[in-house]
Simulated assay, not measured.
Amino acid sequence: VARAISRSVYGQDLIDLNENWRILIGGRYDLLAQRERVFDPLGALAGEPTSSLSKGIKGYFSPRAGILYRPDEETQFFAAYGKSLIPNTGVRIQSGEAPPPQQDTQYELGFRREFMNRKMSFEVGLFDIARDNVAIPNPANPSGFYSVVTGQQHSHGIEVNLGGEILPNLKINAAATFLHALVSKDDNIPSQQGSDLLGAPRRVYNFSANYTFDTGDLKGLELGASYYYASRLEATLPNTYGFTLAPQQMLGASLAYNFTDNLRFELNAANLTNQSNWTSNGALYHGEPRTIAASLTYKY
């Protein structure tokens, strides 16, 4: 039985220095309490014949800051910094102490520009994220029941997005992410250091389009299409040269009809080509097959 309770205090202030400059400052303090009880009378998992208990209480401060510059109404430049934490609930370490939480540190720089009378927008962002206290299986405990909290993961990249109403009633969105996510520290399994993370493709592309009929006999009808692509994934950690998973691709389509302002019917199809899309977290998993879902919604 695992439990994590956080008592938190949070504050932030958004300050308009003038019509062009805006800053954000804030922070969060978490008093994190963790407790876990394991009952294993046969010792098959923990290697101990009785119940065991781990607990701990510790405080963490997570600052946050950002700045926004708007030279005109259509253009924005921004920079941001922040820290966050995620409790390592369910992670057991042999010392009996509660494991420290994962802590993320993120830096971001970005630019946004609106055009075509602000119906379209272009955005680009650079990011750098480091995650500390990553839990991995304890190599000294072959059962995998115990973990060690010693690793660090690091990712950086760029995100680009173009979207809006390109033609009357036709909305599009095109996004691309170029990412490099790797194991930047591992004191227990040094061979993993420098390996790409599982489930972290180097390139991801998304495209979607939606057309709405607002006049004539087809008024109320909406048609949509989408495409997703992710580049090859590593299959093992540490990475094995030449052993990668094929790129992931998914084609989707949607149809909706608004009978009235309150009644709406939707039909959505995902992975129309039934692509296999294998993923790995150390074991291989088959991706979502072709899926079709229908819904009828009434608002009152």
Rank of each mutant, 00 (worst) to 15 (best):
130 A>W: 12
65 A>C: 08
90 G>P: 02
125 G>L: 10
105 T>A: 10
79 A>M: 12
59 G>S: 10
107 Y>Q: 08
59 G>K: 05
51 S>F: 13
100 P>H: 04
103 Q>V: 14
106 Q>L: 12
59 G>C: 07
90 G>H: 02
77 F>R: 02
78 F>G: 04
61 F>D: 04
122 F>G: 02
79 A>Q: 07
131 R>L: 08
126 L>P: 00
81 Y>R: 09
54 S>Q: 15
92 R>F: 03
85 L>I: 12
119 K>P: 03
70 R>F: 06
129 I>T: 12
77 F>Q: 00
110 G>R: 01
105 T>W: 03
127 F>L: 09
63 P>H: 06
127 F>P: 04
128 D>L: 15
70 R>M: 11
111 F>M: 05
49 P>T: 12
54 S>R: 12
75 T>L: 09
57 I>W: 12
68 L>P: 00
69 Y>P: 03
90 G>R: 02
55 K>Y: 14
128 D>P: 03
108 E>D: 08
68 L>T: 10
102 Q>M: 15
49 P>L: 13
54 S>P: 05
97 E>I: 06
52 S>R: 11
50 T>K: 12
80 A>I: 00
127 F>E: 03
123 E>R: 15
57 I>M: 13
56 G>H: 00
78 F>S: 06
96 G>Q: 03
110 G>L: 08
50 T>P: 01
91 V>F: 03
80 A>R: 08
121 S>K: 11
107 Y>M: 09
62 S>M: 14
119 K>Q: 15
60 Y>T: 02
51 S>H: 14
76 Q>F: 11
65 A>M: 09
70 R>A: 10
126 L>S: 04
119 K>I: 10
84 S>E: 04
74 E>H: 13
48 E>F: 15
83 K>C: 08
105 T>M: 08
85 L>P: 00
77 F>W: 02
67 I>T: 06
124 V>F: 07
107 Y>T: 00
109 L>A: 09
126 L>I: 05
55 K>T: 13
87 P>I: 10
125 G>W: 02
108 E>M: 02
77 F>L: 04
93 I>E: 07
106 Q>R: 09
78 F>Q: 05
120 M>H: 06
87 P>N: 10
132 D>T: 13
